[in-house]
Amino acid sequence: MTSNILSIAGSDPSGGAGIQADLKTFAARGTYGMSVLTALTAQNTRGVFGVHFVPAAFVADQLRAVLDDIQVDAIKIGMIGNAEIAEAIADILADRPHIPIVLDPVMVAKGGAPLLEADAVEAVRTRLLPLAALITPNLPEAAALLRRSEATDRTEMAVQADALRRMGPQAVLVKGGHLESAESPDVLIDSNGTTWFESPRLHTRNTHGTGCTLSSAIAAEMGKGSGIAEAVRAAKHYLATAIERSHELQAGSGHGPVHHFHEQWQPANDCR
């Protein structure tokens, strides 16, 4: 039976990040995707030019409509926007602890535009983190959640991942893409201990939506029944290939999207 995966996140009209990236990822991973919109953005591969938050009550209406009708096997939470939306989501999901939640604490866009209001950080910290099976912050997001300086090496990455897990989530994946090194390691801390995922740094501008895509792929794998470490490993392989094949797309003049459907599409010059 096909697993049903729900994304709660903002919209990206250029298609590379947010809800659009999540739905593409769910489909590419063989699952049925659904969405609850928290925000509309005016953005493209060059930046974010405007954000309009959906009223919290209507976010709640969307979420209840899906949950009351469809079996949800996993949930990915991305851009929340403000404290009211975070509270509305937490109030509903607190009554459904059986659904695994992957929380990607989106705070800043690739180009530097803030995507989370200051008062929402505390709501994410206290209301959503304890509900999550896994959270997937990058180094700046982990530092913001912990109110400390950004990690600059692997030792501090592991320390911060452990500190975040003590705040309530079942597991924490701290992503090391911001490290100044030839490698891009990620560290997972869960009930089984510490696991490092080693990845070479890929030199490309096509990184728009990589965080959204990774967390969505993890949610899809968990919804299909994989354990957390297994889901992370499969999702990282999928994302790495999506980045490597991103040159097959021609979308935008800034940070281009990854190729979500690299396994399903033939390159144009291979079409018969």
Rank of each mutant, 00 (worst) to 15 (best):
N4L: 01
I5C: 08
A9R: 02
G10W: 01
D12H: 00
Q20N: 04
D22L: 11
K24L: 03
K24M: 00
F26R: 06
A27I: 02
T31C: 14
Y32K: 02
M34P: 06
A39W: 00
A39M: 02
A42D: 14
Q43Y: 12
Q43L: 14
Q43C: 11
N44F: 01
V48Y: 06
G50F: 03
G50N: 12
G50S: 02
G50H: 01
H52W: 09
V59T: 08
A60T: 03
D61W: 04
A65T: 15
A65I: 10
L67E: 04
D68M: 14
D73R: 09
G78P: 10
I80C: 13
G81E: 15
N82Q: 13
I85C: 01
E87C: 10
I89P: 13
A90D: 09
D91S: 08
L93W: 01
R96W: 08
I99W: 12
I99K: 05
I101A: 04
V102L: 05
L103S: 06
D104E: 04
V106G: 04
M107V: 09
V108N: 06
L115K: 05
A118C: 00
D119N: 07
D119P: 00
A123T: 09
V124I: 10
T126M: 03
L128D: 05
L131T: 12
L131K: 10
L131F: 10
A132E: 08
A133Y: 04
A133D: 10
A133P: 01
A133N: 10
L134V: 13
L134D: 15
L134E: 15
I135D: 03
N138H: 03
P140M: 13
A142M: 11
A144Y: 01
T152N: 07
T155S: 15
M157S: 13
A158N: 14
V159D: 15
G168Q: 05
Q170D: 14
V172C: 05
V172L: 08
G177M: 12
L179T: 07
A182C: 05
E183F: 03
N192S: 13
T194R: 15
T195Q: 12
W196G: 05
P200Q: 10
R201M: 10
L202R: 14
H203A: 13
T204W: 04
R205M: 02
H208A: 10
G211A: 14
G211W: 02
T213V: 11
A217M: 08
I218W: 11
A219G: 11
A220I: 10
E221I: 09
M222I: 15
G223K: 05
I228R: 04
E230P: 01
A231V: 04
A235W: 03
K236G: 00
Y238S: 08
L239I: 15
L239K: 02
L239C: 11
A242R: 05
I243E: 07
E244K: 07
R245V: 01
E248Q: 13
L249A: 09
Q250P: 01
S253M: 09
V258E: 06
H260D: 11
Q264M: 09
P267V: 14
A268V: 08
A268D: 14
D270F: 10
R272A: 15
